[in-house]
């Protein structure tokens, strides 16, 4: 069964059609790359998937459930987690706390229990700390050594890592990565690439949708690619097929001398 099924998704802001009848499907463990120039509707697509925007028309089915009318947090509970283009960590919380925010335990605490100092709540808290520490270990000691540092004090690349950790903390079925390489140079991008491959290896069942405007970056990462242009899906399929597609080359890659 398809994990995520998107049919004819459309949204208009005023008169502008930001996403225009986009359809695609995702299997468990599959990775999809979404590419396209700036303003082609990539981030809007993510905002639709995670429920921040309500689509004008079209449907999203996640794990067999229609997400229509669900709040952002309810969609998260169906197993969809995401990162943001411009970070959006909880800047004044420390690394561990940021990851903990992705965990179920935080939402399962009973308020009465926590003010009474009940054992159950203490256990829950301990469990959350343990889980969060474990998740950090995906990146070896890079994050564990700074577990009590405030997020805004982290170096840029570690912020990205932290974001990924926070996104996978809840054991989601799908994660959406919004331009994870934004603002990074070549070497950093390569390291990030390795990080993502690590994540993929550690969580083989996880489906990933990654937005990028650089096709080169996602080459080794994705199974399938979708190309957006002015909100419309102009190509969708295996990476090599898409890369060879005439339309894509014309609309996007064709502008060869323009650095991405």
């Amino acid at each position: 069964m398809k994990l995520l099924d998107v049919q004819d998704l459309t949204i208009c802001f005023g008169g502008v059609i930001a996403v225009n009848e986009v359809s695609f499907a995702l299997q468990a463990g599959e990775t999809l790359g979404v590419i396209g120039p700036n303003g082609s509707g990539k981030t809007t697509l993510f905002n639709l998937l995670s429920g921040i925007y309500k689509p004008t028309s079209g449907t999203i089915t996640l794990a067999g459930k229609l997400t229509q009318g669900l709040r952002t947090d309810e969609i998260f509970h169906l197993g969809l987690s995401r990162t943001f283009q411009n970070g959006r960590l909880f800047w004044n919380l420390n690394v561990l706390e940021n990851i903990m925010m992705g965990l179920e335990e935080v939402r399962n605490t009973s308020i009465v229990g926590s003010i009474m100092g009940m054992q159950k709540e203490k256990d829950l808290q301990k469990q959350a700390v343990q889980k969060a520490s474990k998740i950090m270990e995906i990146f070896g000691t890079l994050l564990t050594s700074q577990a009590n540092k405030v997020a805004s004090d982290l170096p840029y690349a570690d912020r990205r890592r932290l974001e990924i950790c926070r996104a996978i903390a809840s054991n989601p079925k799908v994660i959406l990565l919004d331009e994870p390489s934004a603002g990074m140079d070549g070497i950093e991008t390569e390291i990030l690439m390795n990080d993502l491959l690590k994540v993929k290896k550690a969580l083989p069942e996880l489906s990933i949708i990654v937005v990028e405007h650089d096709m080169g970056f996602i080459k080794g990462l994705v199974d399938k690619v979708m190309v957006l242009d002015y909100g419309k899906c102009i190509a969708y399929g295996l990476f090599d097929d898409v890369a060879a597609n005439e339309d894509v080359i014309k609309a996007y890659l064709g502008q060869g001398d323009e650095a991405c």
């Binding site: 952002t72 947090d73 960590l89 935080v106 926590s114 808290q125």
Partner: peptide, 27 residues
Amino acid sequence: RFSNSLFGLALNAMREDQLAAQCYGMN
């Protein structure tokens, strides 16, 4: 006790970024 519980942590996160908190499952 409120502040040091996970509930207090969630409130902190909400203060930092409401939208992100929502996207991470906070009602």
